[in-house]
Nucleic acid binder design. Structure first.
Lengths: 340, 340
DNA sequence: TTGTAAGCGTTATCAT
DNA sequence: ATGATAACGCTTACAA
């Protein structure tokens, strides 16, 4: 198949200059006479010339592209973060690769391959092993970790978890709830681990005896439903459930309904993330809002700044979250929405 | 900054062969003696050699990457489709670029740039002008259109709209609703246009007089809310609303509540897409389910098959949708979920 | 200010 | 079966 786009040689010939001059014009160098610049520009236009990306990459040792690695795209969390990332990166002329690991064993390999075609990478959550991240950093590829504790010299971007979890838990305690149980797997993700830690700290600070152990749950509604049901059917019933995310909380809401428990009368339930469902569900779900797009955009900013500046000391950014109080956590007036 | 990865030259030297042989081994050619193959393999391992993507692209005239162009990632629709695409493409070793146009004027330019770094492109909905698509096809870049009518020789993947819209509308008519109004902008997207056409056909077929004109609405809940409110407050009230998507329908649901209209008693409301909210909202929203991931995966399959085979005649795939009947459309038993 | 030429790291076509 | 070597299309010293 013949190449259909024109090359720098054709432009040079047409403009009566060398390819170096074309390259300079095209790169916006100041050292070109206005007259020749004009001739070259015209030739470029006439031939509809756009430099070959591959050649430029090979010669210039850079890709003008970055990548985002995520576990899975379902649910609003990842897609919003990625959207925030894409919007920022793509405005700056960077291509954006996406790679889902889907919990596959090949994930590490795939990420390493991706690293070969980008100038930098954002790694979300627990998608790849620390060793892989370290190897990439060692190879000179900037890495920003999103929602994951610092690894080596990588930058990190996270949303505040600990303080919000404490505030949320304190709020429940103020309402008189006493047997609080955390629903979610603290080992499953750094975020959940921090939320659980904040929860524990608040319960301990209340001096109401030892906190209950957490009840593990996957991240999906069905997981929360099962976990809550199991909790209701065994041992002493809790009077408040702090779920690791909104899906789990909504599953728990359904489980409570299935067991005839009134929320928030018999049982308070809270979530995390403030997905759109949280507002629509009855009763409205008290939760914590994360700045999803800002997480992505911040990661993009950090990455590009690092690529551009050859900065070497890692930076760590913590974005604020907001408690969203609705009705599932106690006897509030039924507020349709919280306006801070 | 020194290059940290090894090159084909270093491997060749170490294995005591020429770079051509390394290239052959690496490409799996059969013409290499097992003995030398083994030596080369070892050298590759020892040096942790991975061929430079840029060099390979430049020499081989291909990118091993494709791109998806979408208008915006918010809402479950696009992210699910893209996830389906990514999953399929990435398993086949193809890199996946994403590009959101966000309704910007620069969209056409951005897409053209993206076209320079991929072997093929998926274009969703009305993100770029037909002329741009035609130019890309002319330049030999395969394009698959998703949820958009055929353009030139591009492949297309779509979900069934017309028949489902007819079935949905017929269902409402059977329940005795007579003043049906379509909520959404048929000019706004090909999908909506088809849904509206199906709606009109069904109403006409019922022989109950001329159909009402559609009431335009954006795609978001707030848009649906406003549009429905306006409809309620002016002219003769409708007794059934067929919304172009679930968000609009849910907005209409809220508007009905705001005006004291009972759903489905005074007013039936239906949506489209079966987003997770549709099931949770009260009353449960009757809607049409699209195979979102399958749309993405099908587009990926078509694109890669076309890239691999140099196929030239366009293919058009229509994926089936499913009517999901809940309670918002009439006096059904309140089914928690539909299991076909 | 502009041109020459040496890379960049592959693939692929010849020879041998 | 293997080795030279010419593309591939650009960037960037270095010269002029």
């Amino acid at each position: 198949m013949p190449r259909t786009t024109s090359t720098i040689y054709q432009v040079a010939r047409r403009a009566g200059v060398s390819i170096a001059t074309v390259s300079r014009v095209q790169a916006g160098h100041e050292t070109v006479t206005p007259a020749t610049r004009e001739r070259v520009r015209r030739a470029i236009d006439e031939l509809d010339y756009r430099p070959s990306r591959s050649a430029r990459q090979l010669a210039g040792q850079r890709h003008d592209a970055t990548g985002v690695v995520f576990p899975d795209l379902s649910g609003p969390y990842y897609s919003e973060v990625i959207l925030g990332y894409e919007e920022k990166a793509s405005v700056e002329g960077q291509g954006v690769f996406i790679l889902g690991t889907h919990g596959r064993a090949q994930a590490n390999l795939r990420v390493a391959e991706l690293a070969d075609r980008v100038d930098g990478l954002v790694v979300m959550g627990r998608t790849v092993d620390d060793a892989v991240v370290e190897r990439m950093l060692g190879a000179g590829i900037p890495v920003v970790m999103l929602a994951r504790p610092p690894v080596a010299a990588a930058d990190t971007v996270r949303a505040e978890n600990d303080a919000s979890a404490r505030a949320l838990t304190a709020h429940l305690l103020e309402h008189g709830y006493r047997r609080l149980v955390f629903l979610g797997d603290p080992m499953g993700s750094p975020d959940v681990s921090e939320r659980h830690a904040g929860f524990m700290a608040a319960v301990r600070a209340a001096g109401i005896g030892a906190p209950e152990p957490p009840v593990a749950s996957g991240f999906r509604e069905a997981d929360g439903y099962r976990a809550a049901l199991h909790l209701f059917d065994t041992g002493a019933p809790p009077d408040a459930l702090v779920a690791a995310n909104d899906e789990i909380a909504i599953g728990a809401l359904r489980a409570a309904r299935a067991r005839g428990l009134a929320v928030p009368g018999d049982l308070a339930i809270t979530g995390w993330d403030d997905i759109s469902l949280a507002e629509h569900v009855r009763p409205g779900l008290t939760t914590v809002r994360q700045p999803l797009r800002a997480l992505g955009a911040t990661a993009a900013g950090l990455l590009m700044e690092r690529i551009g500046s050859h900065r070497t000391e890692p930076r760590h950014v913590l974005l604020p979250t907001a408690l969203v109080v609705r009705t599932s956590c106690g006897t509030h007036a039924d507020q349709e929405e919280q306006r801070p």
